[in-house]
Structure formats: structure tokens, C-alpha cells
Amino acid sequence: MTAAARPARSLAAQERRFALALLAPALVVLLLTTTAPLVYLAWTSLNRIDLAMPWLSGFAGVDNYAKMGSDPRFWNSLLLTAVYTASTVVLQVILGLSLALLVLQIPRGQGALRIAAILPIVLAPVVVGLFWRTLVLAPDFGLVDMTTRALGLGSHNWLGDPQLALISVIAIHTWQWTPFAFLVLLASLATLPPDVYEAARLDRASAWQRFVHITLPLLRPAIVMVVILRTMTALSAFAAIFAATGGGPGSATEILNLYAYRTSFTELNLGYGSSLAVVLLAITLAISFLMFRLRRAR
């Protein structure tokens, strides 16, 4: 009997069984490595777990969450997370799009540009952070400081001054990830239909009008996608800041990730750290659901 002659229903049932057999191992792994830890995290966030004073550990109810309300370092980390995420995403999109539009006008050498753009993306964030901390931003001997000194703008403590440190870590993140926005937008720009532009040119539309009325609307899906992905990366940023400033000076660059880490593994207060991690996860998931909803509404 050939497969075609088999009743359709048993074929579908067979396909279903096969699919589940293939999928089950991966789903079990994901349940064990992501979902079960989340449940455990929810539990530890309701406990006092202090590795420095283990005799005080025990169930604490919502104490950890109640504590956040009056914890200025928590509110500071939330604010910094918002500033860090918003500014890096906006900078990456604007710089990436501008550069992609420019490069599209250049007849040759795009290949070399693409390779250059890949370089920051493949580097480990922790190495990027260290590189900037030493070779780029160190007072007196870093590239940036040498430049500002040569230009007569003086030497600055780029990672030691609270305000400059925040700007610096934003610059580091933007440096590493703008190539991503650039590459994606360049690829999308190359697929836009040329005849629309031809028609617009015949209608004597200016370059700016063509950009606003043709390029931007056509590019919208790509831009939305870049914004979503960049937001996710910014919300889980850790290693580059850890390497460059460790969250300091003081708590000047302590985004929520850094605060949760420091609370848990420097101050060894795993209970409070857990509740901060829960807040971080809730925020990330809420923002991603919101963004996907916006995207689907288009």
C-alpha cells in the first residue's frame, strides 16, 4: 500500500505524533532551564536569603518587594535603565539609518564597509567594555582623551565622573550595536522598488520629500524590528558596563541589571536580588509584548 492510499486521517495523526516526538525533548529542556528557574526565582524573591548572614534566612512574604518602594538605589536603577535603553536605541536607529542612506549613494566599497561593521558585533561585550575602559577612555592615555587634549578641550575622567560615565557607557553600547541597525537597514533599503523613486523624481519631489513620503513608510517594518531587537539587547545589557565601570562611580551607571547583580553577588543578598530580578523580567516581558502588539497592529 502506498502512502497516498492511506486514509488521510491516520496520516495526519502520524504527522502529529512525529512532530511531538521531535519537539518534546527541546521543550522539556526549555521547561527545565527557563521556566522551572523562573518559578524558583519567584519563591526565592519571597525569602530572605543572605549569604553573609545565613542564620537570618527564611520566609519573608512580600518584604523584599515592600522594601523597593523606599529604596532610592532601586528607583535610580529604574531611571537609569529607562535612560540607557531609550538613548541607545534612538541613537542606534538614527546613526544606523543615516549611515545606511549615505552608503547606498556610494557606488563602490560597500563590501569593505560591511566587514568593518561586523567587527564590533562579534566582539564579546566584556572585551568591548575593557577595551574602552583602558585604550579608549582612560584619562591621559586613552584615544578619546588624547583627542580632546589635542583639540584643547582638556583631559577628563570619562569613567570616573558620574555624568560622563553614564554618557560613556551609552557611547560604548551605541558603538557596539549601531552596526547591527546599519546592516539591517542597508539590506532593507536595497530591496526598495526603484520605480517608485523614478516616478517621484519625475513629479519633482525633493530628496527630503522622497525620504519622508517614500523611504520612511517603506522602511517602517525594518525600523520597528530594529527597535524591538535593540530594546531587548539594551534591557539585558550587562557585561560591557560591568567591565567598564562596574556600575559606578557610586551607582551612576547602575542600571537594573547591574543593581540586581551587585545586590546578589557582591552584597550576597540573594533574596532582595531575586525580587529585583523578578521586576527586571516583568519589565522586559511587558515591553516585548507591547512592542509585538504594536507591530502586529500595523
Binding site: L30, P37, L38, M232, S236, A260, Y261
Partner: peptide
């Protein structure tokens, strides 16, 4: 479900892993 698990920030999960 697979997509959601991709979005979880690592710092959010590190405490249960450690414990």
C-alpha cells in the same frame, strides 16, 4: 513559548541557576 524564552534577560535567571 520558544520565542518568549529567548527574551529573558540572563541577569533575571542567574540567581536560581546559582542556588
Amino acid at each position: 513559548y520558544v520565542l518568549v524564552t529567548q527574551m529573558l534577560p540572563p541577569v533575571g535567571l542567574i540567581i536560581p541557576y546559582y542556588l
